[in-house]
Write a protein that binds this DNA or RNA. Structure first.
Lengths: 138, 138
DNA sequence: TTCCTTATTGATAAAATTATCAATAAGGAA
DNA sequence: TTCCTTATTGATAATTTTATCAATAAGGAA
């Protein structure tokens, strides 16, 4: 991946290391987006990596801002590479998901920042609602 | 709680029942907000309720829109009564939390609805960022 | 290079969460 | 009221997630 050297340097500056395990997980998330820990383990266990390492690594990468955590609405969390910021709307009735451009929320986030003084990260938000089709059927 | 009859009727209309276990969990969440499953179990296990029932009930109540799920930023989820819609900003540096009025996001949500055709629920969003104090110390 | 410090991992145990299924109990019908 | 249907629960097992700790390995210093 093209961004690996930059990430390696960033981690190094914080006293951490880019290991083969961390790289493998980043690579898995570079192919499939929104993966659960189990799905990620399925794609990297061939390397001999432990499940415990998968969970630890995900927590570590998320804590360092390299991964984003997304609420999938089923009580579980999924992970994805940050930097490709976007948000979701999930239909509570049929489960369909709509990906929405982050720019659509930029004004609201800017206002939040100016009113609270906080500096907000891109993040990954999940809205819940009902899609147009399901609204008609009810 | 004043809203119990209304909830009972709403569940009944969907073929479900208001049980003593569900009522106990609602009552626990009426006192303490943003509780984890473990915290909730701690407050209701005196009634003889099983942990499995706590998890099941939380999922059920959330699925019926009576509870909201909030990402606490530590990889875990917390539950709270819906109807008291609000949102949070969590500082990634010091962990401090700021509660923000839902009205601040209303314009953005309205725009999202008109652009996507979805009907959005109030929900409970969690933003991550850095608070003013931590911005100065870095 | 070799040594040293320590971040990281695997192995394992512990804890949390979910699934299965028989027993219970709530509400509707008569 | 009694009977019947079925949503719900507790008990239990299975699975997922987390914590502990010794062994490994990466990077810095000399």
């Amino acid at each position: 991946m093209s961004c690996t050297p930059r990430l390696t340097q960033m981690l190094r500056a914080r006293g951490y290391r880019m290991t083969s395990q961390r790289f493998a997980i980043l690579q898995a998330l570079h192919n499939g987006r929104h993966l659960s820990p189990a799905q990620i383990y399925q794609r990297v266990h061939q390397t001999g990596m432990t499940e415990a390492t998968v969970y630890r690594t995900l927590e570590f990468l998320a804590g360092n801002g390299i991964l984003l955590v997304a609420d999938r609405g089923n009580g579980h969390l999924a992970y994805e590479l940050s930097g490709e910021s976007h948000h979701h709307i999930i239909c509570r009735t049929c489960g369909k998901q709509l990906e929405i451009d982050p720019g659509m929320l930029t004004p609201a986030i800017r206002q939040l920042e100016s009113e609270t003084g906080y500096c907000l990260y891109a993040g990954h938000l999940t809205f819940f609602g009902q899609c147009p089709e399901c609204q008609q059927n009810s």
